[in-house]
């Protein structure tokens, strides 16, 4: 495979009974790219993402994620990707440091490496004063930033972010995107879903799913030209309304 393509998907399909949730989607994502994965509720985004991260078996098609096949090597995929969603992030009843240690342990990092990573991460996020506080006591925005950094603890090739900024205040939302830019700049591929259309503009390329199919895929600039739209919100409304 081409080393620069960290996600390669061809004709990937998922059926539940006679309902086609994901209908033969095809796309590729480059190393270090920020790839926006958009679509209306129920368009099939979550189902597609579950196949890519190796927790749902595709019905047909091909996909290769971080160098591994989604049919046969799901355990390798899980070791080589990071995942963060708004719904499941960190353990509220563990402290900041305990959460980092726990996830570091899950991914098989050595004690020494976990210690180094913890110190670096806590300093980078400015969490020195709350390192031994329970995560449940932190403001949502801090939790989300910490959760993102924890999802990168094992230096994955790709990080999957499922609506990472929902409900977060506008300043923290932007700080969060600065973390995303930084990770991408260091070569990590970022695969992100969002309902904030201004965030779609921050992506290198954006795909829009409608009823199980990818109906558009390009840079935000080209999509706006193609749909004669002023912003990504208009592009989305034009496409998803069908």
């Amino acid at each position: 495979m081409n080393n620069n393509k960290v996600i390669q998907v061809e004709g990937l399909t998922k059926m539940f009974g006679d309902f086609t949730a994901v209908n033969a989607i095809t796309f590729e994502v480059d190393k270090g790219e920020i790839f926006g994965f958009l679509g209306a509720n129920g368009a099939g985004k979550t189902t597609a993402m579950k196949m890519l991260i190796g927790i749902s078996n595709p019905t047909s098609g091909n996909a290769n994620v971080a160098g591994f096949d989604v049919f046969t090597h799901t355990e390798n995929i899980k070791k080589n990707i990071g995942y963060m969603s708004q719904k499941f992030a960190l353990y509220d009843d563990l402290t900041v440091r305990e959460n980092i240690t726990f996830f570091g342990g899950i991914y098989g990092l050595s004690r020494k490496r976990i210690k180094e990573k913890s110190d670096a991460l806590i300093e980078e996020l400015g969490l020195q004063n709350v390192a031994n506080k329970l995560v449940g006591a932190l403001p949502l925005g801090w939790k989300q930033k910490l959760s993102f950094s924890v999802s990168l603890i094992h230096d994955p090739k790709i990080v999957f972010l499922d609506e990472p900024t929902g409900g977060v205040d506008p300043i923290t939302r932007r700080q969060f995107w600065e973390l995303i830019y930084k990770a991408a700049n260091q070569g990590t591929t970022v695969f992100v879903t969002t309902h904030y259309m201004d965030e779609a503009e921050y992506c290198d390329r954006v795909s829009i799913m409608v009823n199980g199919k990818i109906e558009a895929l390009d840079t935000p600039k080209k999509l706006k030209e193609q749909f004669k739209a002023e912003n990504m919100n208009d592009v989305f409304l034009k496409l998803a309304r069908g």
């Binding site: 209306a40 509720n41 929902g166 919100n233």
Partner: peptide
């Protein structure tokens, strides 16, 4: 109370 949180732009509109 936050009727549109997590809802896509089309449904929000």
């Amino acid at each position: 109370d936050e009727p549109t949180t997590g809802v896509d732009p089309v449904s929000r509109k």
